[in-house]
């Protein structure tokens, strides 16, 4: 089991290179071994969303999804990096198809004796609402590809922030063999605004940042065992932890396969009282990952 990163000292804070501040393309470049980065289906292929312009929304030439190939610590790697600044990193028909196809390709390679390390840089609000059903279908394809691929090679996910990882893509995050977060990252099925809209401000105040990070933040997710590693916002540290995660190989039981354990825990929750975050921490702190 890994221990969470110690907070950076003042000198480290000054000399660190922020990962969060990088664009998706810069992130992929920063993680791969120097000089090995190459992009598949890049901007000049112009695989943009056909649906956004019809609705008066400016599309992006790569649909906000970077497929990068190269090596990581000398081993073949593919990085799927979502650009959170374009449409909140949402998954549309094209960006979703790029992820699903890359995962399938990696599965094909792995089955033919050529294991490729697959890394997801998740920065997404989930399905792109303008593409509704096509986005949902894409996520279904991605998730079934994840389950098939992770039998062969570990799939690692990083949620660094500041968008976080929500909606259908949070399910994808949960399917990862290993998940790495920063304190700034957030992970949740429904985003704070969705919960407030659906259940009222008494249930969840989406303007309360402290509450949001206490529920969805990296520190909380790590404490509850939904995430394997908590890391500071630093390119070098994140790269080290990603390499370390791949080094652990395919887990004998993925977190999402531990259904019985989670059901058992859910059964012990007293739903007649509002659950406090500190109680939740106590209840879920026993890590089940084998």
């Amino acid at each position: 089991m890994m221990t969470p990163a110690n907070r950076l000292d003042p000198k480290q804070l000054l000399t660190r290179k922020s990962f969060i501040e990088l664009s998706a393309r810069e992130r992929a470049k920063a993680l791969l071994d120097e000089g090995t980065y190459r992009e598949l289906l890049g901007p000049f292929e112009r695989l943009e969303s056909p649906w956004l312009p019809m609705q008066g929304v400016v599309p992006q030439s790569d649909d906000g999804l970077i497929v990068a190939r190269g090596t990581l610590s000398g081993k073949d790697a593919a990085i799927l990096a979502i650009e959170g600044r374009f449409q909140g990193g949402s998954t549309g028909e094209v960006s979703g198809a790029k992820i699903a196809a890359a995962l399938e390709l990696a599965q094909h390679d792995a089955e033919n004796g050529w294991p490729v390390q697959v890394l997801l840089l998740l920065e997404t609000g989930g399905v792109r609402l303008q593409e509704a059903n096509l986005g949902l279908e894409a996520i279904a394809e991605i998730n079934s590809s994840m389950v098939a691929l992770r039998e062969h090679v570990p799939v690692v996910g990083v949620i660094s922030g500041m968008v976080g990882c929500f909606g259908g893509m949070a399910i994808t995050a949960a399917l990862c063999s290993y998940l790495i977060m920063t304190r700034q990252g957030r992970l949740g099925l429904n985003g704070p605004e969705v919960i407030e809209e659906q259940s009222g401000i008494e249930e969840f105040d989406s303007s309360d940042r402290q509450l949001i990070w206490a529920v969805n933040g990296g520190e909380q997710r790590y404490a509850a065992g939904f995430v394997d590693d908590l890391v500071e916002d630093d390119v070098k540290l994140i790269r080290e932890r990603v390499i370390e995660a791949f080094g652990r190989g395919v887990p004998c039981r993925h977190r999402s396969e531990q259904v019985e354990d989670y059901l058992e825990r859910l059964a012990t929750i007293d739903v007649t009282h509002q659950l406090e975050i500190r109680h939740f921490g106590r209840l879920w702190s026993k890590r089940v990952l084998s």
Binding site: S23, G42, P43, F44, V58, P59, Q60, S61, G64, E83, R85, F86, Q87
Partner: peptide, 18 residues
């Protein structure tokens, strides 16, 4: 050579030059 910069994000733009 062709080059690509930027992102279609708030207050920003993407430029594809060929």
């Amino acid at each position: 050579q062709r080059t690509h910069v930027g992102v279609v994000g708030s207050g920003d733009l993407e430029v594809l030059l060929e």
